[in-house]
Simulated assay, not measured.
Amino acid sequence: MTKPQTISVTKPISEDLPEEKFNELETFIDNLETTKGALIEILHKAQDIFGYLPRDVQLYIARKLGIPGAEVFGVVSFYSYFTTKPRGKHTLSICMGTACFVRGADKVIEKFKEKLGVESNEITEDGLFTLRDVRCIGACGLAPVVTVDDKVYGRVKEEDLDDIIKAYRS
């Protein structure tokens, strides 16, 4: 395997995107045995470092790897795991797949919107939650399903929502 070529790239620095985070990402990329086929791995690391993948981070990665920015954006926009917007401390996802929808997920998400004061894909005012509607998480037997970060809540009813929210507010 070939070692990645070290390319010097100007880092876009702002209050939200400090130089230390770009330095951490640069070190990660430079320490890879090869960058060939590593775009998704690099994007995962970048999202872990920055919390999301804003345009400046995507362009930095593209320049660092010597690939078109459109290629990076294509991967970011294709995979639902990646986000171009900041997220709250906790990501609250409601499955809207067929089984969940039939069992009341539409009512559950509407109640979450009401209780949190946000629409889908928005962050609560306190920065604690991002509310997301997702297609299918593959737990149809537990429908309707809600996840908070990596924790799965099955057979969720409207009356369960206060307890779910409370568990993450404390």
Rank of each mutant, 00 (worst) to 15 (best):
E24T: 05
K64H: 10
I13W: 01
A46N: 02
G51C: 03
I49Q: 09
E19K: 10
T98H: 07
I137W: 07
E125C: 00
D48Q: 09
C140Q: 10
I94T: 10
T130N: 11
T91A: 15
E119P: 01
V148A: 14
H90A: 03
F101W: 12
G69T: 08
L17R: 04
G37D: 13
K107S: 01
N31I: 11
V72G: 02
K45F: 09
I109D: 04
N31W: 10
L131D: 02
D56M: 08
D150R: 15
D160R: 01
V108C: 07
Y60K: 07
E125P: 00
D133Q: 11
V57W: 06
T27M: 11
L92S: 04
F82S: 01
D106G: 14
G117Y: 01
Y153L: 09
I13S: 02
V57D: 01
I164A: 01
V9G: 03
I137V: 13
L32G: 11
A167C: 05
K115G: 00
L53C: 04
Y81R: 13
V146I: 15
E122I: 00
F50D: 11
G88H: 04
K36N: 15
E71S: 06
M96D: 00
D48M: 06
H44P: 00
K151V: 13
I29V: 14
A70Y: 09
D160G: 03
T2R: 09
I137Q: 14
V108I: 15
T2Q: 11
E20Q: 07
F129K: 00
L39M: 11
E26Y: 04
